[in-house]
């Protein structure tokens, strides 16, 4: 009983507080799962590989894009770049414009994400001749 009191004394509390940061790192990953956690880089490269498949068909493009938009994230510019190039291979300009619209909507209240994406994608857009929704005037009624 006294041991508990000693442990909760000032010094004891201080050591507890000091040792806490050491515990956050292992707790951040799920201790109860042995499955390896996919890193962000692996995620990005997986999707880039998916959209870069040379014979990607229109169903795979739709499936991949709808799944990707379903995640709680905004895709990296390199993923979008490969997706837009997939649209070019499939001769589907409408889907390319739609993807840009979707990622803009996906950014939600963070207004700085979409300009960054456009800035990063600008070379691709120029090369493929894709107009942004703003250039086409469909971003507002």
């Amino acid at each position: 009983m006294f041991r508990a009191v000693v442990r909760l004394s000032v010094s004891g509390v201080r050591t507890l507080a000091r040792s806490r940061p050491a515990y956050t790192a292992p707790l951040a990953t799920r201790c109860y799962s042995h499955a390896s956690q996919e890193t962000d880089e692996e995620f990005d490269s997986r999707w880039v590989t998916y959209f870069s498949k040379p014979d990607l068909d229109s169903w795979e493009l739709r499936k991949g894009m709808n799944t990707l938009i379903g995640y709680d994230l905004v895709p990296e510019p390199k993923i979008l770049d490969s997706a837009l190039r997939a649209c070019r291979r499939l001769d589907d300009l409408a889907s390319a414009i739609r993807i840009l619209e979707a990622v803009k909507d996906k950014s939600g209240p963070h207004k700085d994400i979409y300009p960054y994406l456009i800035q990063e994608l600008q070379p691709t857009l120029d090369e493929l001749g894709i107009s942004t929704p703003e250039e086409l005037g469909i971003d507002r009624l």
Partner: peptide
């Protein structure tokens, strides 16, 4: 649409968009 997209006018691009989709995100 199978040719280069850069040479298409904005009206053509919009028309293509409307062929594939009914409403834009804004609508």
């Amino acid at each position: 649409e199978k040719g280069p997209w850069g040479q298409m006018s904005n009206e053509d691009k919009l028309a293509l968009y409307r062929l594939s989709f009914r409403q834009t995100y804004a609508e």
